[in-house]
Design a binder for these strands. Sequence first.
RNA 1: GGGAGCAUAGCUCAGCUGGGAGAGCGCUUGCCUUACAAGCAAGAUGUCAUAGGUUCAAGCCCUAUUGUUCCCACCA
Length: 872
Amino acid sequence: MMNKTFEPKEFENKLYQKWTKGGYFTPEIDKEKTPFTIVIPPPNITGQLHMGHALNNTLQDIVIRFKRMDGFATLWLPGTDHASIATELKIVEQLQAEGLSKAKVGRESFLERAFLWKEKYGGRIVEQLKRLGSSCDWTKEAFTMDEKCSKAVREVFVSLYEKGLIYRGYRMTNWCTSCGTAISDAEIEYDEKPSFLWHIKYPYTDGSGYMVVATTRPETILGDTAVAVNPDDQRYISVVGKTMLLPIINKEIPVIADHYVELGFGTGAVKITPAHDPNDFEVGERHNLEIVTVIDENGIMNENAAKYKGMTVLECRKAVVDDLKELGLIEKIEPHTHNVGECYRCKTAIEPRPCEQWFVKIESLAKPAIDVVRKGETKFIPQRFEKTYFNWMENIKDWCISRQLWWGHRIPCWYCDKCGEMIVSRTDPDYCPKCQNDKLRQDEDVLDTWFSSALWPFSTLGYPDKTKELEYFYPTSLLVTAYDIIFFWVARMIFSGIEHMGKTPFPEVLIHGIVRDEKGRKMSKSLGNGVDPLILIDKYGADSLRFSLTTGVAPGGDIRFSEDKMESSRNFMNKLWNASRYVIMNLEGKDVPPLDRDNLTNADKWILTKLQITIEEVRKNLEKYEFGLSLAKLYDFIWNDYCDWFIELTKPMLYSQDHSVKLRALSVLKFVLINILKLMHPFVPFITEEIWQNLNISPTIMLESYPKYDKTLVDLDAFDSFEAIKEIIVKIRNIRAEMNVPPTRKCRLFVKTANVDAIKNARVYIEKLVQVLEINFVSDKEQAGNKVCQAVTASAEIYIPLGELVDFEKEKARINKEIEKVTAEIKRSQSMLNNAGFVAKAPKKLVDSEREKLEKHTALLDKLNLQLKDFD
RNA sequence: GGGAGCAUAGCUCAGCUGGGAGAGCGCUUGCCUUACAAGCAAGAUGUCAUAGGUUCAAGCCCUAUUGUUCCCACCA
């Protein structure tokens, strides 16, 4: 017995277990079948399921379930990411709570803790993905630091190194003082912050006055090694080459000329701090300037900062400004907003800092990655995201891949301190190949997390080993991800796939938006406006959540979350549930035959035709990843056509004494229901499976085949003819509502029509759906008596005697309204047909149909006018 | 500075290759009609941001403008 309402809690977990136990998520390598593969964007082991995951995984699951039902050998490969920085921060926190530190416990014990942490918490997000209904092949679950993926990372690192595409160098890097590591350009977020522009006087050493220099970072004065002006700046031509006295620390620095300085901005003079600004670093290189570091890796002023040593950057800024004021060297202080670079993990301001790091040389990797997208070998959907991709790829700089962390893939490079040899190797070396020294020192650093995620589409399938999985499932078929991760991940997977596998990793990338709160703001921890999908699943069910996230959504667009939408999704689930329950209740105990195509009523043909049209639309849109459009068609078909019309239409049949009538109606109800469930399954897997179980057809709906358009079930004439009946029913309902006829009151119906048979055939529906006592066919209105309400459809004139209920004023108003509508239609058609250009140039089909409409509406208008005349 | 998106009913948003403006929620009216009140029936509601242009025909294509959101770069 099915519950009266949709209670998802009662079956979701049970069904998920059934699916996994059945092994339904694991594809077989079958040469007869076409593979279809998606690799999951691996969530961080530190992560908890948020709305972004919910959306991302719902979309993947829809495609995967659709393809699986459609006959592909379908693999959705899941896994998690070790999330180097994020996890390391967690472990550091854990240590702090215990009064420990990284230094105290040491590397080995730190890693032990991290792996333990992964064991304990890394599985949370996986369990949460399951609650969504994700049909991932868990037997292939991967982890970016498992043996398989680590082997791939090692292979790729060494091979890139051997090709000269990985190098070590002393470069300006983005340094996070809080995480204590270098990060890549992509990992910086810019935030506009109000600050000041300090105008500082730098006196010339020859006593000939001073020059005013503007800066946003006065504390870096201590590391200045020059002041630069534009060589074309007339104001400063004479001072280039002079020296000036650096305020406070009274060091002599030169005035240099460099085109880096923009004419017309600020004072035209820029202080140069090669150690703490990337642009200044470059200027410094060009002019051979000394690099004076004044800020250390913890963001603290160092010994070069003289008396400011030990202060934080901000403390020092204040102190320096105060001192300069005292010296009378501040000319003015202007408010100034500027973008501050922050670490995307911990939001700490980035300190640019020159140091020794590992880099991937990007140019030769980027070029073919741009080409595959240009040639359409990898397509972005929607296509506009290709612009974003090109823009980034074409301006990409070398990728800093080393991180001064412990949790991650340790760089496979060893140093021989005896002879200075550097060994990069696929296997751990025991001794130096050059000097035989056996005391080698491995590089302390680990790799950027994204280095391993970049290999995900093939590392998870066994690369570098030539496994049968890799051969069968690579390249993958589709990647589904949000637009905010195109740079971090998608771009790097594309160039990695091409470089190491010789093929782009996926022909299509489906980009979706992000989920925002009710007010359209990004959901974030700091705002506390995040909505927990697990709570929503508890409250409304996973299917309602999935439905909410995919309906009414255009590809690539952001989604504004609202609980109202959750409710209406849940209501739709309840509708589907109850319609199914009704049909199943009626099926019980009866041996319902399969659909008999030779024994169908017009109403049957109508719903079957509409079903086929729906199947075609749903499929078409699924192929284009237009899930919102697919669902709109399904929603409309299920609620409006199947429930509101067809189920109601079949009620008199189900109550019929004639058993064969009953069985025929049931066979159609069942046939359509089965198709509805299959069509809906990829979107809302739990409810469809639960209903399926109640139908007792096969062990699972998951492995049924997805409905295909069947033109033998399309009968457009029957469809149109039944639409005409619906029109009559709606008109009668309208009259009854306008005249406030009590719902229980049955009335007589007089019909004037050229098509008596069609209405006779539909008599049973009309009687049931609009409380009609009997239908009389007349050739003249008079035969219906007086005190009648009347209506006109394209196929019939309708008269309903309502006696005292007829309100002639209302009736008149109602008919006038109809006349208005029809007149407007006539006008529209006429103006189009009167347009010579339209008749000459528009497709003939269109012109013809416009003529037909004009004819039809003119006839209607005549009848309406006649009806109106009666009131005079 | 460069680029992209969005602007459609009170709200949230669909609208496919140009060919009669749609949905959900909300609102009005009447209904517990034995699948469903998480429901049924009947309704009301739009200068499709503005101004031009292309076309027989524009919410859709082109140009400009305004407002708005985002991404990239980053000038001290």
